[in-house]
Design a protein around this nucleic acid. Structure first.
Lengths: 206, 206
DNA sequence: AATAATAGTCAACACTTGTACTCTGAGTTT
DNA sequence: AAACTCAGAGTACAAGTGTTGACTATTATT
């Protein structure tokens, strides 16, 4: 038997999942109602308040959920063969994989980064910042980039991260189309990242 | 005196403006109601239907409106001193200028690119495509980039355009903060574009 | 001058929304 | 075993939602 606390956090998660599934089905989080979420989680509307004060607070918890997914992704990318040599090359594949396997999370992220409330936008931004930092530290150990200043390395990481995450909505929209289109897109992404990489390798801060 | 047609297109525009002003005030277009727009335009809800069948159709017309702004911007960028030498350098300044002077339009664009209905997303994408093509043709006449294949030039343009437009929401959020932060951001943007530029100049398609 | 077209109004509908209040039954603490 | 806590249900309400249909006054057409 489950304790009261355990049961609570279970329904709490079911509210989060409900919101994600609604977003994944095509709605914009900004227009998802508290009632809809509650209904979808098998709850009466008023029970929503036992867990969150409003939809924004639920949104912040969805961001936390998203954070877990992103960290798992980072680990997967680092473990993958060829991460050291061909860092970006292999990362983009891991990224596409994760987007396709966590569509709801990434729809939510894409939407909220530009269309969420200011608080929500900031929360998403913080998640991206985590990535920029991780990437920046990984880049540090790349031979011909190690002479870059930490500021420039940070800037370069921002550029790469924003390029990858900016492609999210396109990846999602493409996920239902032919494998041909998908591969074409991935190849184009790789080229873009390689161009940035090249730019970084001849970079001279000034 | 105005003809009936003229008057109609005037109130039509007032509906578009109303929607934009609501978005500019912080709402997400996806959650803006038909009634709210009508009210804001000084109309009774049912009159909305004389102009648009639903909010999505109005949205498409907002995109057209946005298109005009973007084209005006392109012209402004090309006329600016130093466009030929330091293309990106000067363009980013024009861009920031336009974003700040047409906040509502750019909030709308940022939101809808990732959070609009599929139809709306596609419409926004088409507007960006216009830019990519224009930039690609401008790049063609740059000496050390002219040997690039048209495909690679296209790819590079996509990279640049997405980098610039991806920064929109940050520019908007920064527009209320100190000039110091703004300048810092612009300088960072310039560096990013320079890195791409560098990458392009040592690019060897393969 | 008579007729037709139509932008905008008005009233009304069925439905959804967030939220306040009360109640209950199963877990927890004493 | 008694007292307490509290997640979730039930009821209710005022406000907002999209949409329908009939009406009106002004403009355009004949």
């Amino acid at each position: 038997m489950l304790s009261r606390e355990e049961k609570k956090s279970l329904t709490r998660q079911s509210l989060i999942d409900a919101a994600l599934s609604i977003v994944g089905a095509g709605s914009n989080f900004a227009s998802v109602s508290l009632r809809e979420v509650a209904k979808n989680a098998g709850l009466v509307p008023t029970s929503f308040y036992r867990h969150f004060t409003d939809m924004e607070e639920l949104g912040l918890n969805v961001v936390d959920d998203l954070g877990l997914v992103l960290r798992k992704m980072m680990r997967a990318a680092r473990q993958k063969d060829g991460y050291k040599k061909g860092l970006l090359h292999s990362s983009i594949e891991v990224y596409v994989d994760f987007v396709c396997q966590h569509k709801s999370h990434f729809y939510f992220m894409s939407q909220c980064r530009t269309g969420g409330t200011p608080v929500l936008r900031q929360a998403i931004r913080n998640e991206l910042k985590y990535f920029e930092n991780e990437l920046s530290s990984d880049i540090r150990s790349v031979p011909f980039l190690s002479e870059m200043s930490s500021q420039d390395r940070e800037m370069m990481s921002q550029l790469i991260v924003s390029t990858v995450f900016d492609a999210t909505i396109d990846i999602l929209d493409l996920s239902d189309s032919s494998a041909n289109y998908q591969n074409e897109f991935i190849e184009s992404m790789k080229k873009k990242l390689r161009m940035i990489w090249l730019g970084g390798s001849v970079w001279r801060s000034k």
